[in-house]
Amino acid sequence: MSANRTVYLVSGANRGIGLGLVTALASRPNTIVFAGARDPAAQSLKALSAKHPNVHGVKLTLGDKADNEAAVAEIQRIAGQLDVIIANAGVLTHSSGPLAEIPISAFRNDWEINTLGNVILFQTAHHLLLASPSKAPRFAMISSSAASIGTYFPLRVAAYGSSKAAANFLVKVMDQEHPSLISLAIHPGWVQTDMGNHGALANGMPEAPETVEDSVNGILARVDQATSKELSGRSLHSRTPSADLC
């Protein structure tokens, strides 16, 4: 193991923000990047791995304990350490509607993946993560302003927003229970992904206002700056330093 290199795990890495994160990290010196995806053989990841030997695709289905255990074992085998987890994978099952009409199945699915999926990821990886040679391991969950109570905006996505709000709370729990761990919830902005553009169309916009590249740069700036406990346990906007969304 080496404190001179940084080993990342990014979930939901085969497209959108996740793929953008892996692409940006792959170009950094002294890094190993594990790209977690339900299909690690996706063409996007195969092409990236061919260009960057420091990128390794691993099968990682959020909420699937066996997948998580196998992925962490693969990280241990190849790299022998884990320094940063960026928990990006997530789902929005029901795109819009009032609380009285959202199917309960949408709540169950969003909470199973967005909330419990991150619990399983943390429970599976925390021993390796907390043993990071950096002495300051980081767990950054990609959240959403839809989860904010203090800056509530009526997006009509109660299942998704509540699942992310619960996950934000768990980020705070991680911070309190593990003094060496830096845990963050990061709102990526309204990004030009499948999910972001779908929401934009529903609001009369041709596409979401923020590019994947700009969002990724903001997210990684937050992760890079989180080298002490000052920011740990907070929900932050990727582009606005002073914005705390808790």
Rank of each mutant, 00 (worst) to 15 (best):
S2E: 10
N4Y: 14
N4G: 05
R5P: 01
V7M: 02
L9C: 10
L9D: 04
S11Q: 05
S11A: 08
R15Y: 04
I17C: 06
L21T: 09
V22H: 10
S27C: 10
S27D: 12
V33W: 05
V33M: 06
F34H: 11
G36A: 07
A37G: 09
R38G: 13
R38V: 11
Q43K: 13
S44D: 04
S49H: 05
A50H: 09
K51A: 15
V55M: 09
V58C: 08
K59M: 12
K59T: 13
T61P: 01
L62V: 04
L62P: 07
V72K: 01
A73D: 14
I75W: 11
I78C: 03
G80R: 09
L82M: 06
L82W: 13
V84L: 10
V84T: 11
I85Q: 02
G90P: 04
G97S: 00
P98I: 04
P98T: 01
I104N: 00
S105D: 14
A106E: 03
D110Q: 07
I113H: 08
L116I: 15
I120D: 12
H126A: 13
A131V: 11
S134C: 05
S134T: 15
A140F: 01
M141D: 01
I142E: 06
S143D: 06
S144E: 05
S145V: 14
S148T: 14
I149H: 04
Y152D: 03
G161K: 00
S162V: 12
A166Q: 02
A166P: 08
V171D: 01
D175Y: 10
E177H: 05
I182N: 14
H187R: 03
W190N: 01
W190E: 01
H198M: 02
E210I: 13
E213D: 15
D214F: 10
S215Q: 04
V216H: 10
N217S: 15
G218Y: 08
I219L: 07
L231P: 00
L231R: 03
R234D: 08
S238R: 14
S238V: 12
S238E: 11
D244C: 08
L245C: 04
L245Y: 12
C246V: 12
C246P: 02
